[in-house]
Design a protein around this nucleic acid. Structure first.
Lengths: 337, 337
DNA sequence: GCTTAGCACTCAACATGCCCAAGTGCTAAC
DNA sequence: GTTAGCACTTGGGCATGTTGAGTGCTAAGC
C-alpha cells in the first residue's frame, strides 16, 4: 500500500471527525474526499492505520476516530497551515487599541485569542528571570514599614510591603536605595540571589541589618513564585464542547484554576523557536487533561513566556495553530516596541 | 389550614429536594418528617403551596420542587442557621497561616470558601472608594516617565507608569510629592476628583503642567475601574453540579468571567449589615444566572466589599450562608488587625 | 501485488409496546 | 380540618424487534 495515501486517509479522517464529531467510515470517506480508490481499499488502509494505533473504533460497527497518536502524526507531518481570514487579521490588529499597560494588553490578547479559536486561551506573564532591573524604590510608610518596589525592563512592576523589625530613618533608606540601585540596576533578575548578598556585605555595619531585610524583600519580588501568574479567558467555551470531554469538564477546570499545573504544563512544552508546540491528550503531564490538547508558543523578548489555547483533543489544529502563532507574533511586536 | 404547618411542609420539601435532587411527593414527606398528619392532608397543603407559586410539579405525576419564590420564602422565614462543624472552624482559622499580604489572604480565603461550600467562591477586592490615602510616591524611571504609586490604608497598592510629556526633574517631583502628600494624605479616595484639582491650582505655575499630569494619574488609580477586581475559586464545582443547570454551565462561566457582570451583581445585592444576602434564580439581574443563586455579604472595614458563593438554586442555603458569614467575619477580623 | 465487488456479520441507535410505581386530585366519610 | 379510598396520569424501565452504517474477509480482476 502506498505511504502517501495512508497519510491522506489519516488526514481525511482527522478533518472529517473534527468537523462532524462522528466516527467516520470508509464509505463516507470516499464520498467526501476524491481519493480515487474504492471504499474497500480504504477499509484495508484503515485496518493498517488501526494496527499502528493511529485510529480506533469506538465499537465494532462504527467508523474510526483518531487516537492521540493519530493527531500527533497529523500535526507533525500532514497538516498545512491555514492562513487567517481578513477579519481575523483585522481583529488581531485591533489589539493595539486601548491602554498600553502590560496587564491590559495581555487581557485583551487572551480574550481575542479565545474568541478566534473558540477555546480557552491562556497567557503567562512575561518571565522576570531574564528581565533586568530598571528601578528600585523604597518608601517609608510607617516607622517600621517599608514599601519595596521593583520595576523590570519588561514593564512589570512588583511591590511588597515589608516589616523592617525596627524603626527606619528616611536617610538610611535613601542611602540604601542609592547603593542597591547602583549595584543591581541593569542586572538580570534571576541573578539577584547571587548579587544581593554582596550588596549587603558592602554596606556600613549600621545599615547592614536594614539592608538585609530589604534585600530579602527584593529577592522575594524576583523569585519565581512572583512571576507565576496566568491570565485566561473563554472558559465558557469548555461548556460548549462538553460532549468532547466524555468524563466531565471538572478536571479541566481544576487544572486551569491551579496555576501551578498550568505553568508547569506551559514550561514543559518545548520551545520550538519557529513554531507552535502542541501537546495532545495523554501526552499532557496532568491527568485531568488527558482529553485535552494544548497549543502554545513563546512570545515577547526571548520568547520566554508562553501563550496558547487549551481545548478538546478533537480540535481544529491547523486553524488553532495559525491563530496562536499570529497572535503571539503580534503580541511580541507590541511589547517589543 | 394552619400557617405554621404550611411553612413546615415547604421547609421539608426544600430540604428533601436539596438533599436528593428528586421531586418530593406527599408520601415520602410524611415518612421522612414526622408531621403528624397523613399524606392526604399534605397533598392539600401542597396544592395550596403550588397555587401560591412556592412549589411546582415538573409533570403531572411527579412530586414537587421548590420554585425561586419558594426558596426565597425558605431563606427569609424558615431556615435556621446551621452552626459550623469543628473541622470547618479549624479550617477557617487556618486562614491566618501564610503570607499576610492582601492578595494572598484573599486568595486563600476564596479557596477556603469554595472548599467549605463546594461551590464557586467569589471575593471582591476591598473598595477603594471609602479607603483613605496613606502614601503617594512618584518615581522617575526615565526622563519623561514617572511611576505613580498610591497606597491606601486598606493595604491596596496601586501603581501606574505615566508619560509626562516633557522631561521631568527630580526636584520637581520631590516638591510635588510633598505637596500632594500634604494635601491628600488621609482623605478618602472617592473624593480625589474634587480634591486633586485644587492641589494643582495651588502649585506654582512652573510645576502646574506636571502637577496636572500626575493628578490625572492619581485619579485613574482611584477610579472605580481600578477597584473592579474579583478573585474566584472552585469553578470546577460547577461541573459537578452540571445536572443542576439544565441548560448548560456555559452562561454561568461567562458571567463569572465577565468581571463587570459579577461586580454589578455583587453591588446590586443589598447590604444587610447583620447578615448575608441571597439572590435566587431569576432574581439575578443577569440572564445567564437564572438558574443560579448567589449568597454574599460584605466584609472588611465598613463592609464595603463583598464576598460570597455562587451555585445552583438547588443549594443548601443554611450551610452556605453560615459558611459565608463565618468566613466574611473572620476575614474582616484579619484585615482589621 | 494492489484493488475491488460482494457478502455475511456485528452492533449502536431507534422505535414500539407494555407494565409499574409514584404521585396527584377529588370525593365522601369522620 | 383531616383522612381513607380511588380513579387517573405519566415518566421510567424493560423486553423486543428493526434498521442502517460499518466492518472483515474472500475471491475475482487488472
Amino acid at each position: 500500500m502506498s505511504e502517501p495515501r495512508k497519510l491522506e486517509v489519516l488526514r481525511a479522517i482527522v478533518e472529517d471527525y473534527v468537523h462532524s464529531r462522528e466516527p467516520v467510515g470508509s464509505k463516507a470517506l470516499v464520498e467526501r474526499h476524491h481519493l480515487g480508490v474504492s471504499s474497500a481499499t480504504i477499509r484495508n488502509d484503515m485496518a493498517i492505520l488501526e494496527e499502528e494505533g493511529l485510529i480506533a473504533a469506538p465499537h465494532t460497527s462504527a467508523g474510526r476516530i483518531p487516537t492521540d497518536k493519530g493527531y500527533r502524526l497529523f500535526v507533525d507531518r500532514i497538516s498545512a497551515v491555514k492562513p487567517l481570514s481578513a477579519a481575523e487579521r483585522r481583529a488581531i490588529h485591533s489589539l493595539l487599541e486601548g491602554p498600553d499597560e502590560l496587564e491590559d494588553i495581555l487581557e485583551r490578547t487572551v480574550r481575542l485569542l479565545s474568541q478566534l479559536t473558540n477555546q480557552v486561551a491562556v497567557v503567562q506573564y512575561p518571565h522576570l528571570s531574564r528581565a533586568r532591573v530598571r528601578h528600585v524604590e523604597f518608601v517609608l510608610l510607617a516607622p517600621r514599614q517599608v514599601l519595596v518596589v521593583l520595576i523590570a525592563d519588561t514593564g512589570n512592576v512588583e511591590q511588597k510591603v515589608i516589616d523592617a523589625g525596627s524603626d527606619v530613618s528616611d536617610e538610611a533608606l535613601t542611602a540604601l536605595r542609592a547603593r542597591f540601585l547602583g549595584s543591581i540596576s541593569g542586572s538580570q533578575l534571576d541573578l539577584m540571589p547571587q548579587v544581593l548578598p554582596s550588596v549587603v556585605a558592602l554596606c556600613p555595619p549600621a545599615l547592614r541589618g536594614l539592608a538585609q531585610v530589604l534585600a530579602h524583600g527584593l529577592e522575594t519580588l524576583t523569585s519565581s513564585s512572583r512571576e507565576a501568574r496566568i491570565l485566561m479567558a473563554g472558559t465558557a467555551n469548555l461548556a460548549r464542547s462538553n460532549v468532547d470531554f466524555p468524563l466531565s469538564i471538572g478536571p479541566v477546570l481544576e487544572a486551569l484554576e491551579e496555576q501551578v499545573v498550568m505553568l508547569r504544563l506551559l514550561s514543559d512544552m518545548g520551545d520550538d523557536p519557529r513554531g507552535v508546540t502542541v501537546s495532545i491528550g495523554r501526552e499532557n503531564p496532568y491527568d485531568g487533561l488527558s482529553e485535552a490538547s494544548v497549543v502554545a508558543t513563546g512570545y515577547g523578548p526571548g520568547t520566554n513566556a508562553k501563550i496558547g489555547v487549551l481545548g478538546p483533543t478533537r480540535m481544529d489544529y491547523p486553524t488553532t495553530m495559525a491563530a496562536v502563532r499570529a497572535v503571539a507574533r503580534y503580541l511580541s511586536r507590541i511589547l517589543g516596541g
